[in-house]
Amino acid sequence: MSGDTSALTLILSGDPGLYRIIGLSLVVSLSAVACAAVIGIPLGALIALTRFRGRDGVIVVLNALMGLPPVVVGLGVYLALSRSGPLGSFGILFTPQAMIIAQTILVTPIIAALTRQTVEDLWLEYRDELAAMDIGPAARIGTLVWDARFSLMTALLAGFGRAAAEVGAIIIVGGNIDGFTRTMTTAIALETSKGDLPLAIGLGIVLIAIVVIINALAWAARRTGERYAG
């Protein structure tokens, strides 16, 4: 990834460095979305279906956390994972795992907040029917999440978009190490700082194309799913 090459040339020539960067970007962002989904969907559904003191406050905070500044999250994770921080003994600062952790923190509130909204809306519609069938609280969550699955896909995509586009957190906790923690966004930041604006823009276009492709695949999956399960 050096010299006077355009991003297009790199793609067409199958530049292994570029493919490694694309691969890492996808692994990091998709892993973060997967982790965030495992945490955020049940959490959002739980908040949607329970009533407790301070619930409104929790919802407001959750919605606000969708706008967590990546650089702040990055700094927090950096301090936590640093050898001199509380989780330093794991030794995972400047690794992809650290990047996944940071992005999971960024994406979880998005998925949880959108799940909360979606499941709550669906709950209003399903409440009587499920009550008439005597469905218990746990099964209720399962039913609503499953029936909201196509809407929840949008929440996952929103989370993925956030993760894939984000540079502030992962550049701090990943360190933008060549061949190890360099992703599309940190590579773009690096090429910009090297003044290689055409390559930076080219990489940016590649990144956007990847995000569009992922969304198109998700959309196709949704359409197919809805046709059979509506």
Partner: peptide, 23 residues
């Protein structure tokens, strides 16, 4: 949907594999 679940599971597994601490 099953397929999506499998993909998610695969990605998760991959994340765990890549998450091996430096030996």
């Amino acid at each position: 949907m099953i397929a999506l679940r499998n993909v998610t599971a695969a990605i998760f597994a991959l994340a765990l594999v890549t998450a091996q601490p430096a030996t």
